[in-house]
Simulated assay, not measured.
Amino acid sequence: MPTTSISLRLEPGQKVTLQPVSWEGLEEILAELGEQRSSRIAYAKGILEIMAPLPEHERAKVLLADLVKILLKVQKRSWEPLGSTTLKRKDMAAGIEPDDCFYIQNYKAVIGKNRLDLTVDPPPDLALETDVTSKTELDAYEVLGVPELWIYEGENLRINVLREGKYIESQTSPTVENVAVVEIIPRFMKRAQEVGVSQALEEFEVFIKAENR
């Protein structure tokens, strides 16, 4: 398939946009790409984007996810991480592969599941992105009904909260209402570049524990 061969030649940092793409076309391309791949997809309104992340993107997404895990751990919250699993619904003609995602309020619904069926399973409570998010990606998250989306970009954290089917930007997170994550997360993302990831995570845990006393 020509479109698939184009996507397979993507270099890190490149993105290809294909349109119009039917749901059947999306499924064929996903099957051709396979599960063991570095590229990620976003699909909404007949537009398919295939992206090849940069190495620094991979590092940032792991760090951001680790910070979220520490937040949840310190707050004694239960969660299930689903990573960059493909979230898609045929009846909504939308699909997305987040950098990472977490089931928190609905964690019990996905315990032990490696594959999701969003016609039955709820969408993740929180999704994470660590680079420029296109309109296609935002459209996909909105259509799939992901309640909260964090976007870390350019040393800033943007929180998008779903309200009546549309994202609005918020200075607070419904998931961790008592933590000023918009200020704190960028600080420790930057700190990791200065002292290394392990020390930054250790300092973050100490800080969050002190905040939660």
Rank of each mutant, 00 (worst) to 15 (best):
V120K: 15
A180R: 12
W150G: 07
K135A: 04
T85K: 06
L18Y: 10
A65V: 09
V74W: 00
I185M: 14
A31I: 09
A52L: 04
I47C: 13
P12H: 08
A180I: 08
T133C: 13
D131E: 14
V16D: 10
G145I: 00
S170A: 14
D66Y: 07
I70C: 15
G112W: 03
P123G: 05
T133I: 08
L201W: 01
I29E: 02
E58S: 12
A140I: 00
G83E: 00
Q14T: 07
L128R: 10
E56P: 04
Q14G: 12
I70N: 09
E11L: 14
K61M: 04
T3S: 08
L201P: 00
I151D: 06
A93P: 09
V179L: 15
R77F: 09
E153A: 13
E153D: 08
I159K: 10
D125P: 13
D91F: 02
A109Y: 11
L87A: 04
K76F: 04
T17Y: 07
T4H: 12
T17W: 03
E32T: 07
P53Q: 05
R213G: 10
Q199F: 01
E153V: 10
F102C: 13
M189K: 13
V195M: 00
E142L: 09
T175I: 02
E32R: 13
Y141E: 01
I104E: 09
E164Q: 11
S39K: 10
K166S: 11
E203F: 04
A94W: 03
R158K: 13
R77E: 09
P186V: 01
V62Y: 08
E11G: 02
A180P: 04
T3C: 05
R191D: 01
L30M: 05
G83W: 09
T17H: 11
A192K: 09
P12C: 09
W150D: 01
P147Q: 03
Q171G: 15
T130M: 13
L149Y: 00
A109G: 07
E11H: 08
Y152V: 04
G145Q: 05
V206D: 13
R213N: 12
E183Y: 06
I184G: 15
L33E: 02
L48E: 04
E164L: 02
L63G: 05
K166I: 01
G196L: 02
P53D: 05
A180D: 10
K61R: 15
G145V: 00
S198N: 10
Y141L: 09
K15P: 06
T86H: 04
M51Q: 06
V143E: 05
L144N: 00
K113M: 12
A109M: 15
E49K: 11
L18S: 11
E24W: 13
E129L: 11
A192G: 10
A109R: 15
D139T: 04
E183I: 07
Y103F: 14
G145R: 10
T130F: 15
W79D: 11
A52D: 02
A200C: 00
